[in-house]
Write a protein that binds this DNA or RNA. Structure first.
Lengths: 203, 203
DNA sequence: TATGAATATGACTTCATATTCATATGAATC
DNA sequence: GATTCATATGAATATGAAGTCATATTCATA
């Protein structure tokens, strides 16, 4: 947890620090990221950094929390808007698009997530056992699809959730070129959805 | 490239060095991996290391080349054995299983690949533009499937190849627990294949 | 305006590692 | 036995960051 001092900072300054951190962690993995660079970029002294955070990991954890909240609330907003109005596969499409939209609006967060995912040790340290909140999300969604009779009732939801989450991530990755996302080419999302739909629908 | 000296070394010693390197790089990312640990583990002096390799990256590149060759020849062996004898989806199954089998026989290579995949900068440095030999492999396979009339002729092979390669990797990951692979539970592979088959077959 | 508590600072220390280099060893060749 | 050449060694040096700390500055309030 950041210190009291950090939270007492004027919004603007706190924001500058967060920005600098996002910038550094989006370029470099946790281990390669440099506290010095973050401090420099935020326009604060290195000493101040340690006034605000216990250490590099403290900041990183805080950042991850913030990002996770932001993303979840973003996607849930879209979900709540469309739930019941749509069938399962349309809903899934919304979730895909919502994920892409989030990535497009926050392109720097994508590599941060990817690099964390790759560092099993760090991942475990941060999330311990409940490492798969992302999977849970898809699992709930799939269960809903089964209840509506649209998803194969025989399907292994854990495996499917895993595959969906992996596919979403890879899609974002595919559509990103040098940190920029080209969202206008809808085709690719629908191709993937077509694949997924055929793969899991009830027959 | 390793030096002449390295290649002149007795097979046994060279192997010890490679072993030690695999061991270190499977535990730590390229950047965290320590030359000292490799030298110690191989039972050579640190100075000797620099007799054999220009630097840490030199060894790493060499290792990646070796591994890629090994894996490709492993999978191709299985492919050649079964090509023509099988239909496309059976062949795909063989490739999946072959990949899993390879991972089971060389569990330490899995995290090495994953960590490299996560380090875009390093990845780019090693492979430059042709970053997707893995995708190419699946693309060829899919093309073959289309020719045999088993794969949807409308399918976007680049996208599908990408998805297959991502799914394979994630499957290996899923089936690995603490560096050990439980291969005996065939069910999960067939579930994923069932999903994939429905997703891409010609209708 | 005076005061001290809170905040800010960056030079310095520490530490873990990569890399170099002068020197040793030992086998082959003369 | 002397000379040469390839190989081996680890102490010495370089590097690059994390984290510390004594000191300076700011700011609320008495």
């Amino acid at each position: 947890m950041p210190t009291e001092t950090f939270f007492n900072l004027p919004e603007e300054k706190r924001q500058r620090i967060i920005e600098a951190a996002i910038d550094e962690f989006s370029r470099y993995s946790f281990h390669k990221a440099r506290v010095t660079a973050i401090a420099d970029n935020a326009g604060i002294a290195k000493g101040s950094f340690y006034q605000y955070f216990e250490d590099k990991k403290d900041l990183y954890k805080y950042l991850m929390e913030t990002i996770a909240k932001k993303k979840m609330s973003y996607i849930n907003k879209d979900m709540l808007l469309n739930r019941d109005k749509y069938g399962f596969f349309q809903l899934l499409r919304e979730v895909f698009l919502s994920g892409i939209r989030f990535a497009k609006e926050n392109p720097r967060l994508v590599p941060i997530g990817e690099m964390l995912l790759a560092d099993k040790e760090l991942l475990h340290e941060l999330y311990g056992e409940n490492m798969d909140r992302n999977n849970d999300f898809f699992k709930q969604l799939l269960k809903y699809g089964q209840e509506k009779g649209e998803v194969d009732p025989e399907a292994d939801l854990d495996l499917l959730a895993h595959m969906l989450s992996v596919l979403t991530y890879s899609l974002v990755d595919l559509v990103m070129e040098d940190g920029k996302i080209d969202m206008d080419d809808m085709e690719i999302y629908d191709k993937m959805l077509y694949f997924v739909e055929n793969g899991i629908k009830k027959r």
